[in-house]
């Protein structure tokens, strides 16, 4: 029911006339300080590296070539696929996926439990889950490192209890990195699943129970398909930041757990750096994340239909 002629200035659209000036600061700041830099980074990935850490404005595919192709130690052998960097990406994807799975296994029951509490106490539970997210990520990662050390409280406690005789080597392993990522992003898994379960119509479960479905059959056949959008959203919110994480692999892992974040970081440190290569790795990481987000958006629009 579009009204013809000039619309009355209702409160709901009171700022219609000045939308542009109101949005100008946002466009200027994010446009100049984020969109432009990302575009510039794309250009940098095609430039030639300078030895002091920086670039020369000669366009080349050298950075991407270095990432994907090897020509032997002296560069005179026939080109082959370079596995070093691909395997770092593969390891990062694998680590992020395991951390996501771990978050899902703990996060789903937690979200379900909170969503089935009385409305009064739900807020408190949710608040308890979100507080750690607001504590400095560096401090949380350092705390985890302190807890998991060879002589740390966890190992000492387990030895005192007589459960183990030698300290478990957790720090500098893949497990430590997975635990770190899990610990960093767990609230991101709980919140969207909670939102989905809160909207779930429990009459569906009751109907299933009336038809003699067991609790777990109901969970598998009825609940999971209905709350799937929340689960997928949670998985993406954990997987995407885990993929580019820097602190957890750097502080909890060792040389064997090198991930994308550290690879990029190295390219910009000191005179040993390689800016175009770092920019190319960042571009490849961003493309991966964009693919994941696009797949998600497509799945959502398909689900809405």
């Amino acid at each position: 029911m579009a009204a013809p002629g000039p619309q009355p200035q209702t409160g709901d659209a009171a700022y219609r006339g000045i939308v542009r000036p109101l949005l100008l600061p946002t466009w200027a700041v994010i446009g100049i300080l984020m969109v432009l830099p990302v575009a510039l980074m794309a250009v940098y990935s095609f430039l030639t590296k300078e030895f002091r850490g920086g670039v020369e404005w000669d366009f080349t595919l050298a950075a991407y070539d270095q990432f994907f192709v090897t020509r032997g130690l002296f560069g005179d052998e026939p080109p082959q696929i370079e596995w070093t960097y691909i395997s770092i990406f593969w390891r990062s994807i694998w680590q992020a996926a395991l951390a996501t799975l771990l978050c899902l296994l703990i996060g789903f029951p937690t979200a379900w439990f909170i969503a089935t509490r009385p409305a009064k106490t739900r807020g408190i539970w949710l608040f308890l889950i979100t507080i750690p997210y607001w504590v400095n990520l560096l401090i949380r990662t350092v705390s985890l490192r302190f807890l998991l050390r060879d002589q740390g409280p966890l190992n000492e406690g387990l030895i005192d209890l007589g459960l183990i005789s030698e300290p478990l080597q957790i720090i500098n392993t893949n497990l430590a990195v997975q635990l770190g990522l899990f610990y960093s992003y767990l609230p991101f898994m709980v919140l969207p699943i909670y939102a989905a379960v809160e909207r779930y119509n429990f009459a569906l479960s009751e109907a299933a129970a009336d038809l003699y479905a067991s609790r777990w059959a109901t969970l598998r056949e009825i609940v999971l398909p209905v709350v799937k959008p929340g689960i997928i959203a949670g998985c993406i919110l954990v997987f995407v930041p885990s993929l580019g994480a820097f602190l957890a692999p750097d502080l909890l892992g060792g040389a064997k757990t090198f991930m994308i974040g550290s690879l990029i970081d190295e390219q910009f440190k000191g005179s040993q750096g390689n800016w175009p290569f770092g920019a190319a790795v960042a571009m490849i990481l961003m493309s991966l994340v964009l693919i994941v987000l696009l797949l998600y958006a497509r799945a959502q629009t398909r689900g809405a239909r």
Binding site: P37, V38, M41, Y44, P241, A279
Partner: peptide, 11 residues
Amino acid sequence: PEIVIAVATLI
């Protein structure tokens, strides 16, 4: 991703 923002901003 944060690390991408970091790289782009530095550049």
